[in-house]
Measured scan of single mutants.
Amino acid sequence: MSIQHFRVALIPFFAAFCLPVFAHPETLVKVKDAEDQLGARVGYIELDLNSGKILESFRPEERFPMMSTFKVLLCGAVLSRVDAGQEQLGRRIHYSQNDLVEYSPVTEKHLTDGMTVRELCSAAITMSDNTAANLLLTTIGGPKELTAFLHNMGDHVTRLDRWEPELNEAIPNDERDTTMPAAMATTLRKLLTGELLTLASRQQLIDWMEADKVAGPLLRSALPAGWFIADKSGAGERGSRGIIAALGPDGKPSRIVVIYTTGSQATMDERNRQIAEIGASLIKHW
Rank of each mutant, 00 (worst) to 15 (best):
S254D: 11
K144T: 04
R273L: 13
T198I: 10
D231P: 10
A133Y: 06
V258Y: 07
W208G: 07
A235W: 14
G39W: 03
I140V: 09
T187V: 08
P105L: 09
T147S: 09
F70G: 05
G239V: 05
K213Q: 01
A123P: 02
T139F: 06
R220M: 07
L79P: 02
R59I: 07
L146P: 04
A245Y: 10
K190W: 14
G141A: 03
W227I: 07
Y103N: 11
R238Y: 10
E210S: 15
S281F: 10
L120W: 14
S104A: 02
I93S: 02
A215F: 12
L55Q: 04
M66E: 02
L100C: 07
Q37V: 09
G194C: 04
L136G: 06
S201I: 00
D250F: 14
L136V: 04
E270V: 12
S68C: 09
G154Y: 04
R220I: 10
K71Q: 14
V31K: 10
L223D: 08
D269I: 13
R255Y: 12
G279Q: 14
Q204T: 12
A222W: 15
E270A: 11
T179C: 12
L219F: 15
Y103D: 14
P25F: 02
S221D: 14
D174K: 03
Q265E: 12
V78F: 06
L197W: 01
M268I: 05
Y260T: 10
S254N: 04
V157M: 14
L100P: 06
E277N: 06
E277K: 08
A246D: 10
E277R: 07
P143C: 04
I259C: 11
S254T: 08
I278A: 14
R63N: 14
I45H: 12
A124D: 02
L73E: 04
A182K: 06
E237C: 10
E270C: 14
G236F: 15
N98Y: 15
A124Y: 04
C121D: 00
A84C: 01
G142E: 00
G263Y: 02
N272F: 07
G154S: 05
Y44K: 02
K213C: 10
N130Q: 15
R220W: 01
G52N: 14
I93P: 00
G236S: 00
N98V: 06
L55D: 11
K53C: 01
Q86W: 11
W227M: 12
P60T: 06
E108P: 10
P172G: 00
Q86E: 12
R238V: 00
E195S: 03
R118K: 13
G154R: 06
E87W: 05
I278M: 14
A225D: 07
A34Y: 13
R255T: 14
K252T: 10
K53F: 07
K32Y: 08
V257Y: 15
K284V: 07
Q203I: 01
E102L: 00
L160I: 00
D212H: 15
A230N: 09
P105T: 03
A280I: 04
I243P: 09
L137Y: 00
E87S: 08
T126H: 13
S221H: 13
D161M: 01
M67W: 11
P65M: 07
A246E: 06
Q97C: 00
P143D: 08
E26R: 03
S201A: 05
G216Y: 15
L218D: 15
E26C: 14
L136T: 04
G39A: 08
E119Q: 05
H110T: 03
W227E: 08
E175T: 04
V72S: 07
P143T: 02
L49T: 02
P25Y: 14
G90A: 02
I275D: 06
M268R: 15
G263C: 00
I259Y: 05
V214G: 15
P105C: 02
S254H: 06
